[in-house]
Write a protein that binds this DNA or RNA. Structure first.
Length: 302
DNA sequence: GGAATAACCTGGATGC
DNA sequence: TGCATCCAGGTTATTC
């Protein structure tokens, strides 16, 4: 499931191959991969062909490629991997991938011709051509860019905890106003971006916070501890190439990450807590699952 | 306005 | 073996 570390691995792999490249052609195989695009497949293809890609940027789980082009508006290709999206770099003319939805043929002045393949099993991910708008804080739009702009559909997404422009004071103040469970708040991308179900469970386990504790009751010290653990979990996952359970997530070369071997709570129902040895439990939580240690993560600790 | 919930989707796992 | 059902979860529209 692509969360911040997985998307960052994809961005880092994509950047050297696409920066300075020109889009030769676009093939849309499945228009369901354009749910965030305002037009149809033909509109997407026409808007992209001939454009120069200036780089690869990311905020939270959103990835975008800023575009140049004579007489063209300030735009970017925005990608969201959803639950099962993959962006792969392939040789020109490479065989169609399983679940391939969109292919961009590009030419890079140093690397020659390449194909960018967007494949997605569950079709929750998408690509879109979107206008770039100024950031509200005048800081760079995200990781991998110095431009103070973001795609319009990413503008409502909060900065992620690894972003230098992330403001912990604003985060603490937001939590103090939230009656919702802390895990729900961590998953709210308008509060803090990049965290999904896996890393929310892992960070809460590391910080010894029960996932259903109301956010507003957490002390400043506890919120600081949580943020430190969120940073640590994301950094470690990034260093290990992300999490992969079943080839749902791969880097641009189709390789899986190793962080699944480092998980302490997520997906470990019934297995001993690495800290106290008591079994990890799984509870249903807003259409998904929460995994935690009921002994280490008592609600009263808040 | 804030919070909670349903819907979207595919394929693997499970049960009968 | 084949069919039906459940489950995984990020985002957004809808409802309360």
């Amino acid at each position: 499931m692509p969360e911040l570390p997985e998307v960052e691995v994809v961005r880092a792999g994509l950047a050297p191959a696409v920066t300075g490249a020109t889009v030769l052609g676009v093939t849309v195989l499945d228009e369901r991969a354009l749910t965030r695009h305002s037009g149809d497949g033909a509109h997407f293809e026409a808007g992209l062909s001939g454009r120069l890609i200036r780089g690869a940027a990311r905020r939270g789980k959103f990835l975008w490629l800023p575009l140049d082009g004579p007489g063209r508006p300030s735009e970017a290709v925005v990608a969201h991997l959803g639950m099962s999206g993959q962006i792969l770099l392939r040789a020109p003319g490479a065989a169609t991938e399983r679940h391939e939805r969109i292919r961009l043929d590009i030419h890079h002045p140093d690397h020659g011709d390449l194909a960018i393949v967007f494949a997605d099993q569950r079709t929750f991910g998408s690509l879109a051509l979107d206008a770039l708008v100024p950031t509200t804080d005048a800081a760079p739009g995200g990781h991998g860019t110095v431009d103070a702009s973001v795609p319009a559909q990413v503008a409502h997404i909060a900065r992620d905890p690894l972003d230098p422009a992330f403001r912990t004071g604003v985060f603490r103040a937001t939590l103090a106003r939230k009656d919702s469970a802390i895990k729900r708040v961590l998953l709210d991308q308008s509060v803090v971006s990049g965290i999904g179900n896996i890393y929310a469970d892992e960070a809460l386990w590391a910080a010894r916070i029960h996932p259903e504790v109301p956010a507003r009751v957490l002390s400043t010290r506890t919120v600081n501890r949580l943020l430190a653990e969120v940073d640590a979990v994301l950094e470690k996952a990034l260093a290990e190439g992300g999490t992969s359970f079943d080839a749902q997530y791969v880097n641009v070369n189709g390789q899986s990450g190793y962080f699944a071997h480092s998980l302490n709570a997520y997906g470990r129902t019934g297995q001993p807590c690495p800290r106290c040895g008591r079994p990890i439990v799984r509870v249903s939580f807003t259409n998904r699952s929460s995994h935690f240690c009921p002994y280490c993560q008592k609600p009263s600790r808040a």
